[in-house]
Amino acid sequence: MGRPKNLSFSIIAAIIGLMVAIQFQTVREPEVRDTRDTWQLREDLMKEKELQSKLLLEIRSNEEKIAKYETERQQSKEEVLRETLAELKDEAGLTEVTGPGITLLIKPAFNLIVEGDNPPSVSPDMLKRLLNELNLYGAKHVSIDGERVINTTVIRDINRVTKINGHSLNRFPIEVRVITENGDSAEKLYNRMKVSTVAEDFFIDNLEVIVNRPESTLVVPAYQDTIRIRYMEPVKTDKGGGNG
């Protein structure tokens, strides 16, 4: 036997061996059968259950941690400040408010209008009076024709058009939404407005005021613009902290 002859033979034998091994491994794979009996299955199930309970415990502890952090956050100063800020925003009229209240409709009294008269318009004075009346009888949040009335709201006559926050009130009917503290005060306000003299004053301007029955959920929109504060500045405390 010559040497190269044997060598090629061996190489080819090695290749065949490799192929057989690969084929064996490929075919053997699905031959791994599940041969566990009931008890082994039971034990495996137990193991998995233990794992599950462990995981559940972990989840619970994590949730507890979350709750702890939550309470810590709630008790922290930051949360107090946040709440105060939200309250102040609420009070300033920067948020949409939902609550019980009544709606008033201001619309032209057509049976009073004589032909040739100027079309009726709401005068700023009348509106201010109405607002005063409403505030007197327990209104908390008011919007006129979709414009929120806040402390700095201006109602004035610009070129003979009454404007509120720059929004013209020349389209009738004008809806005034009033939110009160609760249902009772809404009822009270309703009764007060029913007998109020403001409605009669509006009649002079050929307008009638319809007071609708109190509603349990009324939405007053937020103030749209940013509130510009020009003449206010924080009080300087003489001594650190102060006590007032």
Binding site: A14, G17, M19, V20, A21, Q25
Partner: peptide, 17 residues
């Protein structure tokens, strides 16, 4: 004579490993 058998065994071992 033994070289081809060695080759076969080596091939199988490589394939399995």
């Amino acid at each position: 004579m033994w070289l081809p058998i060695m080759g076969l065994v080596i091939g199988v071992i490589i394939g399995l490993l």
